[in-house]
């Protein structure tokens, strides 16, 4: 078995999940310069909804091929509604307030969502119904499972779709214009409120997809799963250059791979002094180094003068 290759694969899967979530942070930041700390919670909502719906449907005897897309659709709808409501209620009234105010609100929204989820779903872990039979394939001495392949494919398709949306469509052009200068974009006839709402819709839909993938991969969903995930994804976005979409992809993948390699080799590298539970040291050490030498992140250039 090739350990290094396996660790790279592990990291790539973890990284594509981080990247999907990081996109949500980076899109909102790019347009509003707001760190939407509630985004991790939207992912959690996506995971919880998809698990609940899938469990209910499979219990009712709906075939998996139908139940899975329905669960995804339900998660997307609930996440989009939540995301738009959060924007409308918590962020829009503060759009011209000092930067600290929406940041605090974002943290507040995150706590509210977590507690609502706890009240609604309870404190127990939800279990992803075993609808997908795990198959394991051998690739050059490493193993890849069908769920991992599914994650890679879905993540790649979603991110490709997003890049097309941002670079090739009218809405994408409006988004880019709003990101560059909100006032001027407004003067040029862009409906800024609509563009911002669309950003939250797209970001929340991505979060729903990420939520379903994460729940299916790890097999569990929990009301406070969004917190650490959000933190990691946010770090990934910063690593790649927050506000920059390819940066979020790069940052997410890098963070996943670094974490995997870190956890896999830290024990051997430090002679057993530091165990694998210190895996986050690597990720955050790299983050600190990158920010020290490239404060705008790996791909972020535009952001430096705004931050």
């Amino acid at each position: 078995m090739d350990v290094l290759l396996q660790q790279l694969i592990n990291g790539l899967i973890l990284g594509s999940l981080y990247a999907l979530v990081a996109l949500g942070y980076t899109m909102v930041y790019g347009i509003l310069e707001l760190i939407n700390f509630a985004h991790g919670e939207i992912v959690m909502v996506g995971a919880m909804v998809s698990v609940s719906v899938l469990a209910a449907l499979t219990a009712a005897g709906v075939p998996v091929a139908l139940a899975l897309p329905l669960a995804l659709a339900a998660a997307v709808v609930v996440c989009v509604v939540t995301g738009v409501l959060v924007e409308r209620i918590a962020y829009r009234p503060l759009r011209n307030a000092p930067r600290l105010a929406p940041l605090i609100t974002a943290i507040g929204v995150s706590i509210v969502l977590q507690n609502l989820a706890m009240i609604f779903w309870g404190r127990q872990y939800l279990s992803f119904p075993p609808v997908i039979e795990v198959r394991v394939y051998d690739v050059l001495g490493a193993t890849v499972s069908n769920i991992q392949i599914l994650i890679l494919v879905v993540a790649a398709l979603t991110m490709g779709g997003l890049l097309l949306l941002v670079n090739r469509t009218r809405l994408g052009r409006a988004m880019r214009a709003t990101a560059q200068n909100r006032e001027v974009a407004g003067l040029m006839g862009v409906d800024v409120n609509r563009v911002i709402a669309a950003t939250f819709i797209v970001g929340s839909a991505l979060a729903a997809v990420a939520g379903l993938l994460i729940a299916s991969y790890y097999g569990i969903a929990h009301y406070n799963m969004g917190f650490i995930l959000g933190l990691k994804a946010f770090s990934a976005a910063v690593l790649g250059g927050i506000g920059n979409i390819p940066g979020a992809l790069l940052g997410g993948l890098l963070l996943g791979v670094i974490e995997s390699l870190g956890a896999g080799y830290i024990g051997d590298l430090t002679g057993g002094f530091l165990g694998s539970h210190y895996q986050d040291i690597f990720a955050f050490l790299i983050l600190i180094l990158v920010l020290t030498f490239r404060p705008s992140g790996l791909l972020g250039e535009r952001v430096a003068d705004r931050a």
Partner: peptide, 13 residues
């Protein structure tokens, strides 16, 4: 934690 693939991979080796 929820992701153990990295440590499991080193253990598998």
């Amino acid at each position: 934690s929820t992701d153990f693939t990295a440590i499991l991979t080193s253990l598998k080796a």
